[in-house]
Design a protein around this nucleic acid. Structure first.
Lengths: 122, 122
DNA sequence: GCCCATAGTGTCGAAAAGGATACCGTCATG
DNA sequence: CATGACGGTATCCTTTTCGACACTATGGGC
């Protein structure tokens, strides 16, 4: 926990690209952000709500990714001290600022499916 | 080499986001794409040209990332059978189609610098 | 009394990603 | 003759990442 990631932001202009990538990299962060951005009506999702939307993520990984997103200031975690524990995750302003990025990623993914197979060779 | 990456594209709608991320993930691919997109006047860069633009990438990694980008159909590799070997890398159509994504990543990185420090807490 | 849901944590181990370093062959230059 | 540029490979090793699995506490329902 509290990994170090993004340490050497000392590169040339392409750096900004890399920096952003390192922040949203991590196997599930993209999807988490996507769900928080697009699927929640009021912008909040509970832990198991996210789990249901992403069945092949283990609990540990989901916690992990959420903690990193929180550490990076993208999501805010609200704990309600209730008896069946309730925890809500919602995007911060910084998190919402990623919307164009996520949209671009999703748009590209939708358009250019999975493989470069034969269509558009060069 | 010839890693497997992107194997389980079986997820919910957020999948497209993840799929795209997995393709451009890899520590240096973002920067490579950025340089190929933005810095080359005629859209072509040679191996050592890229190396000069990214001094802290080892030869092995640069080769590696370029090979993956090639395998994923983003860049095209042209070898000129000359005596000082000459190899040019340029984007394919598929590669250029990533432009909005790279631009979004760069724009975000430029705007939201590195850290969530104190500005914009929530 | 037992199981379920909630929201996690802890430990372990495999696999992948990444870095360091050394080496290759050819030709031109000094 | 040695050195450098070119575009890589090969080998080794360390770090990081990810997944499986077990475990926690509380209270409600059956």
């Amino acid at each position: 926990m509290a990994r170090i990631r993004h340490r050497s932001l000392d590169c040339s202009p392409g750096c900004a690209v890399e920096a952003t990538l390192q922040l949203i990299d991590g196997k599930w962060k993209g999807v988490i952000l996507y769900h928080l951005l697009a699927e929640a009506p009021d912008g909040a999702l509970r832990f198991n709500g996210l789990r249901r939307r992403m069945p092949n993520v283990t609990q540990r990984m989901l916690t992990n990714q959420l903690r990193e997103l929180e550490a990076d200031g993208f999501v805010h975690r609200t704990v309600y001290a209730e008896v069946p524990p309730r925890v809500e995750y919602r995007l911060t302003a910084r998190g919402r600022s990623l919307e164009p990025v996520i949209r671009a990623l999703k748009a590209w993914g939708d358009a250019h499916a999975a493989l470069p197979t034969e269509t558009e060779a060069a």
